[in-house]
């Protein structure tokens, strides 16, 4: 009974106050890339509904975590909201709910306020930068292609050096083989012509 009441209450509150499309819209307009709710939410269709990561599917324990997250008004309080993904949770943890709500009017300032230190997917591109560029903050194979390329080139420099060395060695061998065969075929043809 209590669970049902809590669930209904959550639905009523959530419908009006727990989806913040301003940030999604800003990121989409700023980057020119299509963005969906999966930028910050556990479910790509947002928090409303009964699918995985949406309010209608939460267990009592998860509802408690959701309520705890909603009351994290000050920065520095670690939260684990089940309807947010790691980036969404980290935003509230780092800047606090109060500041986050203030930024709804200035979503372009979120990157600066959140800071460029955090890189949750370790792809070499800061979460804040990925927010501006409309790429996924939690997927290390998703990001600005050139930045990813340069970061991975640095990470895998040993592999790259080895493959370059192997190619040079192969070239050296093939070139010598080519010269050898060319020389032998010239000799052979002269022998055939002038026995």
């Amino acid at each position: 009974m209590l669970n049902t009441f809590l669930l209904l209450l959550t639905f009523l509150i959530a419908g009006s106050s727990f989806a913040y499309p301003e940030f999604q819209r800003f990121s989409q307009n700023n980057s020119g890339r299509p963005i969906n709710c999966a930028m910050c939410h556990a479910n790509g269709d947002g928090p409303e509904g009964a699918s995985r990561g949406q309010i209608g599917s939460l267990t009592p324990d998860e509802l408690n975590k959701l309520n705890a997250a909603r009351s994290a008004f000050a920065p520095g309080v670690p939260i684990q909201s089940p309807i947010l993904n790691a980036f969404g949770n980290n935003i509230i943890t780092v800047i606090g709910k109060t500041k986050f709500l203030e930024l709804r009017a200035h979503p372009e300032q979120l990157a600066e306020v959140y800071g460029y230190q955090s890189d949750l997917d370790s792809d070499g591109i800061a979460d804040a930068q990925e927010y501006l560029e409309g790429t996924h903050t939690l997927n290390n194979v998703h990001g600005n292609p050139m930045k990813l390329f340069l970061h991975n080139l640095k990470t895998f420099r040993l592999h790259v050096i080895l493959i370059v060395l192997a190619t040079i060695a192969g070239f050296y061998g093939f070139s010598h083989l080519l010269n050898g065969f060319a020389a032998s075929s010239n000799t052979k043809s002269s022998v055939e012509r002038y026995p």
């Binding site: 969906n36 998703h142 600005n144 990813l148 080139l153 895998f156 493959i163």
Partner: peptide
């Protein structure tokens, strides 16, 4: 050999998925 060098470095450093928007 050159083709494999280019292909290998590209595959190692530039995920093909990065070329698509993530909701897709």
């Amino acid at each position: 050999g050159i083709a494999f060098l280019v292909l290998f470095i590209l595959s190692l450093c530039l995920p093909f998925d990065s070329l698509f928007p993530y909701p897709l």
